[in-house]
């Protein structure tokens, strides 16, 4: 990856274009243990694919396959239409897939401009007098962040003095500058307050508008819905399917995320135990009833009375 590389040329998103990434029934086994199975989705240029799921749903296994840390054991991963097994994170990076992890990979005490170029510093001069191109580094950092809409007073301030949201944005801008075509964001809003989350979502939109394909991993449907173009839901290592935005409402998404069926089972169990728990159970049942019935019942376990209604998800155990 050349240090002078400008950002990838913006691509116009067209429906007919070959997806940047296509997952076909991807799965991952550790020996006989199945950590992930049946995941199919696409990532297109200029679009946001959201991966939703609770803790332990298999989100991180999925992104590790995309980022090259793990290899899929089932199914096919197509990059630009070509079946691929990434051998290392470096190989994924070379294919233009950049991952921004939760800890952001920034060094808090170092200035913003040093962080921006860390590991890929441009130099001038030759031999023992080869030195950092400080002027260009500072100017580029300022311009690139400005393009993302981050107006820094001073690129020389330690990155630790920026807010969590701003740091996230610097990490995104860095990935974009170094030629990423696909940006994988691992829970970028998880540790942020409401306002900061909004700031980060705005930068995700900017990256999308610059023609990048974005994979946005989150457990918060309220963050995913406004920005996502399609939603892939994971539960206990299984895909519940990929839904285009036109086919799913925020309420339905929230219902599937909250595991309406599970809440119902819990309510049932608590009701049987009676006593003070019954109060909680009644509240839970009220909540379950408030959920749209079709999604709530779609994944009900067999022992639930509601499962009598058409169960579209037999293996939701």
């Amino acid at each position: 990856m050349s240090t002078e590389a400008p950002a990838a040329a913006p691509q116009t998103p067209t429906a007919s274009a070959v997806p940047l990434i296509e997952a076909r029934d991807i799965g991952k086994r550790y020996g006989s243990v199945r950590a992930l199975g049946g995941v199919s989705t696409v990532v297109k240029a200029g679009e946001v694919t959201c991966v939703l799921g609770d803790n332990g749903a298999g989100k991180s296994t999925f992104i590790k396959i995309l980022a090259g840390s793990h290899q899929q054991s089932d199914g096919e991963l197509l990059i630009d239409g070509t079946p691929t097994h990434f051998s290392s994170p470096r190989a994924a990076l070379d294919a233009g897939i950049a991952t921004v992890y939760q800890d952001l990979a920034v060094v808090p005490l170092m200035p913003v401009w040093r962080n921006f170029f860390l590991g890929s510093e441009p130099t001038t001069g030759a031999g023992p007098f080869r030195k950092l191109d400080v002027k260009q580094m500072k100017a580029t950092t300022f311009t690139e962040l400005d393009n993302m809409g981050i107006r820094l007073r001073d690129v020389d301030q330690p990155i630790g003095t920026l807010s969590g949201g701003e740091r996230q944005c610097v990490a995104i801008a860095r990935a974009v500058y170094f030629g990423a075509r696909v940006l994988i964001l691992d829970e970028p809003t998880a540790a942020l307050g409401v306002k900061q989350s909004g700031v980060v979502l705005r930068y995700i939109a900017r990256a999308r508008d610059r023609g990048l394909g974005v994979v946005f991993i989150t457990h918060n449907p309220h963050h995913a819905y406004p920005i996502g173009d399609r939603f892939m839901l994971l539960q206990r290592g299984e895909s519940l399917g990929t839904f285009p935005k036109s086919e799913i409402s925020l309420e339905e998404l929230t219902g599937m995320m909250a595991g309406g069926a599970e809440l119902e089972t819990l309510a049932h169990e608590l009701a049987r135990s009676g006593g003070s728990a019954a109060e909680v159970a009644r509240e839970l049942r009220a909540e379950v009833d408030a959920l749209p019935t079709d999604t709530a019942s779609a994944q009900s376990p067999a022992e639930s009375p509601a499962a009598a209604a058409a169960s579209a998800e037999p293996d939701a155990r």
């Binding site: 920034v106 005490l109 170092m110 590991g119 890929s120 130099t123 950092l132 400080v134």
Partner: peptide, 28 residues
Amino acid sequence: TWVLLRTRAGNWIFAVGGAQTAARQIGV
């Protein structure tokens, strides 16, 4: 001083001391 402030090696020294895991992730 020159190495610390004006070379790639200097950048890496600050990085490995400041946040070793992050430095490794980013390719230092």
